[in-house]
Design a protein around this nucleic acid. Structure first.
Lengths: 336, 336
DNA sequence: GCAATATATTGGAACTATTCAAAAACGGAC
DNA sequence: GTCCGTTTTTGAATAGTTCCAATATATTGC
């Protein structure tokens, strides 16, 4: 193993001091053109690689942020990362990705680990069951933090997420306008803010239309074939005529279930999903869905975090990215 | 901004030298129990945070690896990350994620950036169009590297990926056994090894069964509604009776297209996908698919990389993770 | 009981690659 | 010779690790 090429070896090669080489590195106007050329030449010749770790020791920024997700296996999160990446790549910042796997203990360990690595800030999708002590712990570590998709506290902390309540409300209103009267909500449990807000929007909108019946069916989201009590409900004497699903994957599963039993989604029964995954536009029937724009959420979260890193403040910002309803075949209307 | 708590302040608080505190930090047996307790107490009291950056300066490992993906928005890659994470989290290693976005120039810039951050190694899914100069550049940076899913050179470099050729062959053989005679391949272009290996397996297996006809239909994979010339082919006087698709997403799109035209996949026409995404088990009809086990690929890649970091060697290892055919309704057999 | 030796523990200082503030060197004009 | 602006260098600072030496304590031999 040959020894590393340091800024010092570059300086020696170019016949200047280490400090001068450092100035060249950072495009300082304080060095003469002639010297700059000589130093750059030496760098090329020796194959110098900048050591950011050493620089970080002196400076205060490391140019890294931490990304704490609770299920890196989910396609929804990859869209989120796409939005984040788009913003940070221009700012010359790099993301360290860790997985809390919905486990608050592991989440805390991973956050500490990120802190040891010196990340400048955190984008955090809190694991279900996180207490709001999490935020004070993060503050104790002096880490700027933006929560995404879920939040642990109604009041404190920065947050960027879709307007779940509004989206769900749009879906229900659309169904009511098209004559559906017995609308169920399928999927999830109110274990975190994202689920609670969906349910709030659902209940509130039903109430507004004087259609109060509590057809809320919990399922295990990690298992797509789990439709909870939906099959029994459908077979009952007073079945629902529409269902709003927690997300598109579940909605596709419901459509598969209906089709396999000879029911045509959109005619016999209305189905609405959420997230607008690409496949929802090409399935049969095509799926009506609440657009939640994960890329937009990611972009906004990254921008907010970068701002908080540059301008530390204790005040909280909350951004709700508003959605819309992408109306397709699965909720009625035009069918082939 | 109060000044940071360093190992030195901890040492002062505990009444020992910095060196002793460092030994406590790393569980050295050289310190007495009594001293250890005092130091740990002081750490808790001051809220000490280990600064890995400073440690990295002297040591040679940083405990980070780089993950260079070409499309972080794709669900397939999130499964890959799941497998990687599973392995590295136990090794106390953290992954920095960057996106090449299928752009070789951007890919190189990102790799250099990772190198500046001092990553110990690289897991790389090379962007389409990468030349094999990429590998020598990475070697020049003294970065151990494992390619995943695709490789830029037939001979050199470590590689872990699914056995695409074998998987495609399994699919074709199954179709032939069930009486299909005119089998098309849908999706992609031979722009990287993963696509080429699929096509090789496809052609070779057709040849084996003396069914040589070149029904290979290129599409733009990023656009699920692009089925290339498939619609025209289907409407022609001699339509195919089966199609093997590049992946499950595309296969689902094909099934949607068929259903919308009154054709039932599995009866009138056989469809096979690849990757075994969760939704393929619950769609209507359920999708027969080539299992590529991205989690397994991730696990193997991470293990190989960790080994190469600890035992640097120039020899290349290639691991093909073998797949199987998950037989469901879309290719015939039992239908409701 | 004392010196010699062994062992456990701790401290000092060098080392890592960079940044930064302050000082110095240099050249030209007056 | 002094003043001034530009360019360059010096040396301290950053927060750890690690080698080597020093000290304190324990054990052994005589």
């Amino acid at each position: 193993m040959k020894k590393a090429v340091t800024l010092n070896s570059v300086a020696v090669e170019a016949g200047v001091s280490r400090a001068t080489a450092s100035l060249v590195l950072r495009d300082s106007p304080l060095v003469s053109l002639e010297t700059r050329d000589r130093v750059i030449c030496a760098m090329d010749k020796l194959g110098y690689i900048y050591n950011r770790g050493a620089a970080n020791l002196r400076g205060q920024k490391t140019g890294t942020i931490g990304l704490v997700l609770c299920d890196i296996g989910s396609p929804f999160y990859s869209q989120l990362m796409l939005g984040i990446d788009e913003v940070i790549v221009d700012a010359n910042i790099v993301a360290i990705l860790v997985n809390s796997a919905e486990n608050p203990d592991r989440q805390l360990r991973q956050i500490r680990r990120l802190r040891e690595h010196g990340v400048d800030g955190l984008i955090l999708c809190p694991a279900a069951g996180s207490s709001d002590a999490l935020l004070s712990e993060i503050e104790r570590l002096h880490l700027p933090c933006v929560q995404v998709l879920r939040h642990v506290s109604q009041r404190n902390g920065n947050y960027v997420g879709p307007d779940y309540a509004d989206g769900t409300s749009l879906a229900v209103t659309h169904l009511v306008r098209h004559g559906r009267r017995k609308i169920a909500f399928l999927g999830g449990r109110p274990v975190h803010s994202a689920a609670r807000e969906r349910l709030d929007g659902f209940r509130k909108t039903l109430k507004k239309h004087k259609l109060e019946h509590d057809l809320i069916i919990p399922t295990h989201l990690e298992n797509l074939s789990d439709l909870g009590s939906f099959p029994e409900l459908l077979a009952s004497s007073t079945p629902p005529d529409a269902v709003v699903c927690y997300n598109d994957m579940l909605a596709q599963s419901v459509m598969g279930y209906l089709l396999a039993r000879g029911k045509m989604p959109g005619r016999d029964f209305a189905v609405i999903g959420a997230d607008d995954l690409p496949q929802s536009a090409v399935s049969f029937p095509t799926l009506t869905t609440i657009v939640t724009d994960p890329v937009g959420v990611g972009r906004n979260a990254a921008r907010l975090l970068l701002d908080r890193i540059d301008n530390p403040t204790t005040s909280s910002t909350r951004i709700l990215v508003s959605g819309q309803l992408m109306i397709r075949q699965s909720c009625g209307g035009q069918l082939p």
